[in-house]
């Protein structure tokens, strides 16, 4: 067991963990942050995407011990004071989700994308989301949602 201390969605937490514990499992199983989900075992799907010290990572591809001392933001910490993040709003407004399983990761990656590139082109959005798989939407409305969140409107 290794002692780790970190901040998750603004709360300080401290636990003894096995080194093999993945960050996503720590979030889900120890902290009850089940908003972050596991969709694959090869780090292709991106459903588990969270922010680690401000940038997006796949939390299945980080050990919990590697997050010691870090600041983690999950989908559950994205809204502030009950106000949805603009990307969350845009996903709802543009119907950028259906079953919703990829959605936490898709939103977290979209936020990261816009942090780095506030006015992306459609191509930049598509490339920026290449690490996140969705099986329901065909991506069309996800791209619209990111465009809308970036203040670039969202043609149908």
């Amino acid at each position: 067991m290794t002692r780790i201390s970190l901040t998750v969605d603004g709360a300080r937490v401290s636990d003894d963990v096995e080194p093999r514990l993945l960050l996503v499992q720590y979030l889900r199983e120890r902290l009850g942050k089940t908003g972050t989900v596991i969709g694959c075992d090869t780090s292709n799907c991106g459903a588990c995407t969270v922010h680690l010290n401000g940038t997006s990572v796949k939390s299945c591809n980080v050990l919990a011990v590697q997050a010691d001392g870090a600041e983690v933001t999950t989908i559950e910490g994205l809204a502030t004071n009950g106000q949805l993040h603009p990307v969350q709003e845009a996903f709802r407004e543009c119907h950028g989700l259906q079953c919703g399983f990829c959605t936490p990761g898709m939103i977290m990656q979209s936020v990261d994308l816009l942090n780095n590139n506030p006015k992306p082109t459609e191509e930049e959005i598509r490339l920026g989301l290449e690490g996140n798989l969705c099986r329901c939407t065909g991506y069309h409305n996800i791209v619209r949602a990111v465009q809308q969140a970036s203040g670039q409107g969202a043609p149908a």
Partner: peptide, 10 residues
């Protein structure tokens, strides 16, 4: 459906 799905309260 979306409120719970976009906030991770699923």
């Amino acid at each position: 459906e979306d409120q719970r799905l976009i906030t991770g309260r699923t």
